[in-house]
Simulated scan of single mutants.
Amino acid sequence: MQFSLWLALVGAGALISFTPGAGAINTMSNALNSGFRRSIWGILGQQAALVVHITIVALGVGLLVANSPVAFNIIRYAGAAYLVYLGVRQFLAKPSLDAESAQALRDEPRWSMFRRGLWVNLLNPKAIVFFLAFLPQFIRLDRPVLPQYLIAAATVIVIDVLVMWLFFAGTARSFQRFTRDARGQRVLNRIFGVLFVGVGILLATIH
């Protein structure tokens, strides 16, 4: 991949990562509930989903999904339902002021956070369609394709990890003062619950 083309990919990848979405909401929620450092496990789950999406596009399966209304809608509505489920659960979550409950929340298993991050990004067919339109612009067919896709995948993933962890998870730190009392926790739970539900509804309704 040419250096100038790679720089363009870096710029586009950064712009995409900074665009708020379900992944950003999930990252901030994890950072608030489990702490800045442990939020990385949810982010890694989201990156695993990106690997799957990029692989699907590279293999040409993404084109089949994009052109199959049935397959697209099944994935779309499943993803929307999952986001709404996360939102309702967050909205109804009770404040945890006692030390034992708060510690249990912060000690959520790493695999649980990873798995939630994976499904949040995986059940988004629009990501497949987006990568289908986005990645080929940086791939030159007159050169070996596999190395180019590997470079593109590594670039997009590294950028997304940095943005999710250093920006969105880091931003969540400024909200931690609201978690010190029941009212603050309830407000944050409802805000993030509404955000999850809102993104889920957008996923289901926007074509």
Rank of each mutant, 00 (worst) to 15 (best):
D142L: 11
E100P: 07
R115T: 13
N30G: 12
A133P: 00
Y77V: 08
K94A: 14
G45M: 00
I25D: 07
G60W: 00
W111R: 14
N73Y: 08
I40Y: 05
S112D: 12
V156N: 06
N121R: 05
S101M: 12
N124H: 01
F91L: 10
R76S: 06
P147A: 06
I25L: 12
T155H: 02
L44M: 14
G35V: 03
V88Q: 07
L86Q: 01
L123M: 10
M113F: 10
L92E: 08
L132S: 07
Y82L: 10
P20R: 00
I159Y: 02
A102F: 10
G117D: 06
R76W: 04
P109M: 10
L32Y: 05
F114Q: 00
V161D: 02
I157R: 02
G60D: 01
G87C: 05
L83V: 04
I128Q: 02
L146V: 15
L141D: 13
R106Q: 13
G23W: 08
I75A: 09
L123S: 08
N30V: 10
L59W: 03
A31Q: 02
R106I: 09
F91I: 09
R37W: 13
V88A: 11
G23F: 08
G117V: 09
V51Q: 07
R106L: 07
A81G: 14
I75R: 02
A104T: 15
V161F: 03
Q47K: 11
F130A: 05
V84G: 07
K126G: 08
P109A: 14
S29C: 08
L44K: 06
L64A: 11
D142W: 09
V57A: 05
Q137S: 11
L83Q: 04
D107E: 14
W119L: 15
N30M: 14
L118A: 11
L92K: 15
F130R: 00
